[in-house]
C-alpha cells in the first residue's frame, strides 16, 4: 500500500504510523459529559468502504495526515495535512456530521 504524502510524495505504508479513526470528536478535556467521552473512546463507524483515518508520516516528514482509505480495496482517495492553514484540521467533526446526516 502506498500513501502519497503531500510533502514527500508516494511512500510505502511501512513509513507511516496509524493514529486512529479520524471520525472521532474529542470532547473538551474539562467535559463531564460521559456519553460524549464514551462515544469518543468506543463508538466507531466501521464502514465497509471509504474511511477517514489519521496517519503520521513517522518515517519521513513526521507530519500528521488525514487520509481517506477504502477498507475494502485499500484505495486511498485523499491525503491532506491534518493542520490546515490555521493549525487545526476539521477532519473528525466534518466526517462525523456527514455520516450522521446519512443515517
Amino acid at each position: 500500500m502506498l500513501i502519497t504524502c503531500p510533502y514527500c510524495g508516494p511512500r510505502d505504508v511501512i513509513e507511516f504510523t496509524y493514529q486512529g479513526d479520524g471520525n472521532r470528536e474529542r470532547p473538551d478535556p474539562a467535559s463531564q459529559n460521559f456519553e460524549a467521552w464514551n462515544a469518543y473512546v468506543y463508538d466507531r463507524l466501521n464502514p465497509a468502504g471509504d474511511h477517514n483515518e489519521i496517519w503520521q508520516h513517522s518515517g519521513g516528514c513526521r507530519t500528521h495526515l488525514r487520509v481517506v482509505r477504502n477498507t475494502l480495496t485499500h484505495e486511498i482517495s485523499s491525503v491532506a495535512f491534518m493542520r490546515g492553514d490555521h493549525g487545526r484540521g476539521d477532519h473528525g467533526s466534518a466526517a462525523r456530521r456527514k455520516a450522521e446526516d446519512k443515517s
Partner: peptide, 21 residues
C-alpha cells in the same frame, strides 16, 4: 523505497525516509 532517479530527486534536494526503522 524512494525514487533516486535524477528527474525525481534533483541535485540539492533532500528526502526524509527510513531504513529498517
Amino acid at each position: 523505497a524512494i525514487d533516486f532517479s535524477l528527474p525525481a530527486f534533483p541535485v540539492g534536494a533532500g528526502r526524509s525516509t527510513t531504513h529498517h526503522d
